[in-house]
Amino acid sequence: MKQKLFTRNGGNIKKIKLFTSKELEKATDNYHGNRVLGEGGQGTGYKRMLLEGRIVAIKKFKIADESKIEEFINEVILLSQISHRNVVQLVGCCLETEVPLLVYEFVSNGYLFQYLHDQNEEFPFTWELRLLIAFEVSSVLTYLHSAASVPIYHRDIKSKNILLDEKFQVKLSDFGISRSIVVDQTRLTTQVKGPFGYLDPEYF
């Protein structure tokens, strides 16, 4: 069964560290509630330290239907091709479970959303910092659209998909519904995904 799931979940993916289900069960204390970082529409995130001492975020998908599996495989493939300081780093994945698991670098300061909507007097979210974040987001999108070997359109840019590290530098995340575009491809027919207000103008 593990081999069957491994193949279905994209077991031919290269350049990515593969974790066993036992390794990640142990790392999360069998997905205990006190390890939860947060929950979203796609799944649950867990914070944990791996055996080599690295702190990571483990993303467990909620539903293992075919569309979610495709998004999972898409995210793994895209992140394995991207090397940019403002894109969250994919450490590895687990492909032998019913619900696929992704292992990312841990980004300590959470989502941009919380700083925009939950103002904290102890930490004023200054306009200088906002402009820096806007600049870094636009820079990484310019890279993905124009400088990457194969252009990548994120399709879901919003404050909940922009993480901030300990220095409040941007880490763009959640590439599940992203799409690669072959440079010489003049037409693209596909289902439009992502909230309309956040859709990449180039892709639209």
Rank of each mutant, 00 (worst) to 15 (best):
S178T: 01
P201K: 07
I82N: 04
R85S: 10
M1P: 02
A148R: 10
L101R: 04
V91S: 03
T190S: 14
G92F: 06
D200M: 12
V103P: 05
K2Y: 15
I69L: 14
G10R: 02
S139F: 14
F135Y: 14
G110A: 10
S149F: 13
Y115T: 03
K2H: 13
P201Y: 08
S83G: 01
N34M: 05
P100I: 08
Y198L: 10
Q119F: 12
V183N: 09
G33S: 13
K160H: 03
I157S: 03
V107K: 01
V137P: 02
G10D: 05
S83E: 15
A147C: 13
C94E: 02
V56C: 12
T186F: 15
S138D: 03
C93Y: 02
Q89E: 13
R179I: 05
V192R: 07
H145D: 14
E71C: 07
D156G: 03
Y198F: 13
Q42A: 12
L164N: 04
I73P: 01
R187L: 12
D184C: 11
S149K: 12
G53E: 11
Q89F: 08
S146K: 15
S21M: 09
L78N: 12
Q42R: 09
P201G: 06
L50I: 01
V99D: 13
F204N: 08
L90W: 04
V192G: 00
N30A: 11
I69W: 14
V150H: 02
F106V: 03
T190D: 12
L5V: 06
F168N: 04
L164S: 04
E202V: 14
K26E: 15
H84W: 04
